[in-house]
Simulated scan of single mutants.
Amino acid sequence: MLTVDFRHFPLTPGDKLLDLGCGEGRHAINAYIAGEVDVFGVDLSLKDLATTRERQQPFAVNDGKRSFHLQCANALQLPFADHSFDKIICSEVLEHLPDYQGALKEIQRVLKPGGTLAISVPRAWPEKICWHFSSEYHQVEGGHVRIFNAGSLDKEIQQQGFSRYKKHWAHALHSPYWWLKCMLWDTQEQSRLIRLYHKLLVWDLMQKPWITQTLEKLLNPIMGKSVVFYYHAGRKP
């Protein structure tokens, strides 16, 4: 399930791309498959990095036109030189970081002038419903530490010299699923309703039927769980 839409974040052969907080590799692996690019995935979780490596292996090729690298590192102290990357993805990460401003500064440091950045965070009002129904949802280890106001975050990023060229919402069908999980947090493993909804989401992901794809497209502006921003760094290329 991709949050960043590569139609708005096109890859160019030879690009060096950083997926900051890559998790289990959904964006990093898709970028590796889609383009002749050098992909670097960074995360604090060794377990997630191991899962990413395992999932990437079936797609690994030795054509000399792309590469795939994984590293355990802190978003506040990235082990890369200034202006190392043409593109950076930071999807569903900033809401986990007490010092998200520090991560934004590191992004600014390692991204090339004229490079592109994609950032996504949970949308405020669907997230507030989750927090209302379950404190465990955001108090678990590695959970969300804040709810972003999208407009304020966008303004803050642009004040650092980034120019936004696209914004959209994503994953509307996932909002009710997480509301149900939060409402039934203590019994969610036994909930038949949640299991059925999860099957629906998997079916949508694997089969991409027109009915759910169209429904989500229509609902995203209203109740999309994530908001996604796209920026040029420093100047528009």
Rank of each mutant, 00 (worst) to 15 (best):
E92C: 10
V93G: 03
E95A: 10
E95S: 12
H96G: 11
L97E: 01
P98W: 00
P98C: 02
D99V: 04
Y100L: 02
Q101S: 14
G102C: 07
A103I: 00
A103K: 05
A103Q: 04
K105L: 12
K105D: 15
K105T: 12
E106V: 06
E106L: 08
I107A: 02
Q108L: 11
Q108C: 14
R109S: 06
V110A: 00
L111H: 03
L111E: 04
L111D: 06
P113W: 00
G115P: 03
T116F: 02
I119E: 00
S120V: 05
S120P: 11
S120Y: 05
V121G: 05
V121M: 05
P122G: 07
P122Q: 03
P122S: 08
P122L: 02
A124V: 05
A124E: 15
W125K: 14
W125R: 14
P126K: 11
P126I: 04
P126Q: 03
E127F: 03
K128T: 10
W131T: 04
Y137I: 07
E141H: 13
E141Y: 09
R146M: 06
R146F: 03
R146H: 09
A150F: 07
A150S: 14
G151T: 08
S152Y: 08
S152M: 13
S152A: 13
L153N: 05
L153G: 11
D154N: 13
E156A: 15
Q160E: 09
G161K: 01
S163V: 11
R164P: 10
Y165R: 13
K167M: 08
K167T: 12
H168N: 14
H168G: 12
H168P: 05
W169L: 13
A170D: 12
H171P: 10
H174V: 04
S175T: 15
P176S: 04
Y177E: 06
W178V: 07
W178L: 07
K181Q: 03
K181D: 00
M183V: 12
L184E: 14
W185S: 15
T187I: 08
T187V: 12
E189C: 12
L193Q: 10
L193S: 13
R195M: 06
R195K: 15
L196R: 13
H198V: 04
L200Y: 08
L201I: 10
D204C: 06
M206H: 14
M206F: 04
Q207I: 09
K208W: 01
W210N: 14
T212Q: 10
T214F: 11
T214I: 06
L215E: 07
K217A: 11
L218W: 12
N220D: 09
N220Y: 00
G224E: 07
K225I: 00
V227G: 08
F229K: 04
F229W: 01
F229I: 01
Y230W: 03
Y231R: 05
Y231G: 02
H232C: 09
A233L: 02
A233D: 00
A233I: 01
G234Q: 07
G234D: 06
